[in-house]
């Protein structure tokens, strides 16, 4: 699905990615974890073509993404911070994104799921952070793309919406899609992900299931396993 080879990226003097090799197979939920500044977002943004790598190649479904924009038809992306033009109404925004990508009717079901009907005629500038995040989720999930990338999807969500989001992620997985998630909430990651990719200082430190990680670090639970990686590496 996604294969990354020898990816390097430097911001000024800060070498963020130092030769990342990663291949993600089709189907399943992959969590990208790592301490702050380990390059999670940079990695994800490189796949999206928002960050242009200094070195290395990225392929999505076998096609090199270099200087192409068409491949993004196959990716749904949920950004970390959702901020929309404040003068547009929610339904206008949905219409606009549909207009930019492709027609779909999936949003009706999603709007209902996240109880967004009362907000459809409100301007985006007047929405609360959590509601904006829900709109963001609707925009992400309404296209039926084979690869879904979620950057901190839980931020600002209330408990009910969080449960709905988890269900939604599982439903997408059941359709055979590949889902990439970054999150700082370990319980969320442990619950949803099949496999984790642990980034440390710009390199892949670990890739495998949570069970493998527990065995490798000899820790009884996931939280402690992650903590032990971080303390052992003084990160």
């Amino acid at each position: 699905m996604v294969s990354i080879e020898n990816l390097h990226k430097k911001f000024g003097k800060n070498q963020v990615l130092k030769g990342v090799d990663l291949s993600i197979n089709e189907g399943g939920i992959f969590a990208v974890l790592g301490p702050n500044g380990s390059g999670k977002t940079t990695l994800i943004k490189s796949v999206l073509g928002m960050v242009i790598p200094d070195k290395g190649t990225i392929e999505v479904q076998g096609n090199n993404i270099n200087k192409s924009s068409e491949y993004r038809h196959k990716i749904d992306y949920l950004p970390q911070i959702a901020n929309f033009p404040s003068n547009l109404k929610v339904k206008e925004l949905i219409k606009m994104i549909k207009d930019l990508r492709k027609p779909t009717n999936e949003e009706i079901h999603l709007i209902e799921l996240f109880k967004l009907e009362p907000f459809l005629d409100k301007k985006l500038g007047n929405l609360s952070g959590g509601t904006k995040q829900k709109v963001n989720i609707v925009l992400t999930f309404m296209f039926d793309s084979p690869l879904i990338i979620l950057d901190e999807p839980t931020s600002g969500l209330d408990p009910i919406s969080l449960i709905r989001l988890k269900d939604l992620i599982q439903a997408e997985k059941a359709k055979g899609k590949t889902i990439l998630i970054t999150s700082h909430i370990m319980s969320f990651v442990e619950e949803v992900s099949d496999e984790i990719v642990f980034l440390l200082e710009g390199k892949i430190y670990f890739k495998g299931t949570i069970q493998d990680l527990k065995t490798k670090t000899k820790q009884p639970d996931f939280d402690h396993a992650i903590a032990s990686i971080l303390t052992n590496n003084h990160a």
């Binding site: 999206l48 073509g49 928002m50 993004r72 992306y77 950004p79 901020n83 033009p85 990508r101």
Partner: peptide, 16 residues
């Protein structure tokens, strides 16, 4: 002001 929204657009299949 539209920086975050631009980022959303950049993730769509549009040319920069």
């Amino acid at each position: 002001n539209s920086k975050e929204f631009t980022e959303l657009l950049l993730a769509q299949p549009l040319k920069r």
